[in-house]
Nucleic acid binder design. Sequence first.
DNA 1: AGCAAATTGTTGCGCCGCACAATATATAGG
DNA 2: CCTATATATTGTGCGGCGCAACAATTTGCT
Lengths: 169, 169
Amino acid sequence: MPEMSSVFPHPDHDHGVCVSETLARAEEACGERGVRLTPLRRRVLEALAASHAPLGAYDIVEKLRKSKEPAPAMSVYRALDFLVTEGLAHRIESKNAFLACTHGHDTGDIVLFMLCDRCGTVAEVTSTALGRDLAQAAKSASFSPKAPVLEVSGLCGRCMERGVRRKVS
Amino acid sequence: MPEMSSVFPHPDHDHGVCVSETLARAEEACGERGVRLTPLRRRVLEALAASHAPLGAYDIVEKLRKSKEPAPAMSVYRALDFLVTEGLAHRIESKNAFLACTHGHDTGDIVLFMLCDRCGTVAEVTSTALGRDLAQAAKSASFSPKAPVLEVSGLCGRCMERGVRRKVS
DNA sequence: AGCAAATTGTTGCGCCGCACAATATATAGG
DNA sequence: CCTATATATTGTGCGGCGCAACAATTTGCT
């Protein structure tokens, strides 16, 4: 059982696979829980899944505006709320942006986001050690933790080697 | 050497001490670094130090508006930027709010914020274990970390015992 | 069809911060 | 010491983002 469950995606990989897999898992999860993945929510999740860099709400509004069925900002926000609540997407607090959850972890997992300042890509990793220390720190402070926000900005390996500035779709 | 360097402040302690000590350290730090702690910046820091709950920018604007020398929102934002840059205050990303740094840690320390959802108080703790695991996780992902954001919301011990909802000044 | 609940659309307001202008402060030369 | 120039700080106007409140619509169920 590896400590890390994921790393940075390669910039040239096939997004179609991520998108279809993410949507498939979302459909299934919603079905099980008896909540509805409406067309709008599906389209928002689709937009998120097509990017491994976090998208701002208005980035999505813009994407939808260019498509056949635009949606007002408020509706996009609500769809994002839904997706985050259902664990299908994450909110990146330090960027006020959102990210599709690409590898469905169980709720309760401790997730750490590494944000590359240059290419914008995000690695979503789970660390058991981090979770243990977090619990330990909370215990020492008599604190009962609920929603951990663990985000680190920096440079991904690829951007450190090459000086290239290539944004991921 | 304790693992944790600080916990939640008692709601009934003397804020005057926090404020004066924080300002004193700020004066000194600015003097050493050759940057200026202008009256406005000082007043903003003072407002932050008087509260152990994070303050939004407009909370501070409001405080200043009630005082003798109001300041426009933009100026407050700039003062906050300055304070954060100089390590005299922290930005709480998950709340879009700011907090005076009350116990000057060296730059480079890994800091974890525990935010009480009920009373709003924040505990600012440093964990060496957390820092080690964070570095380990980064290494595994070939990631070069820069600015860690570690925030956990939940309930502080005091709020868990009593059901009282008493906001800290 | 008819009703309750959920979802989406519309309006509006407050927060956030950029870009430019005005002012205050530091530095150099006479 | 005084002024001129560069630098740093603060003020103002404005546009974009985030979201609350209410209205309109759709969906699920009987």
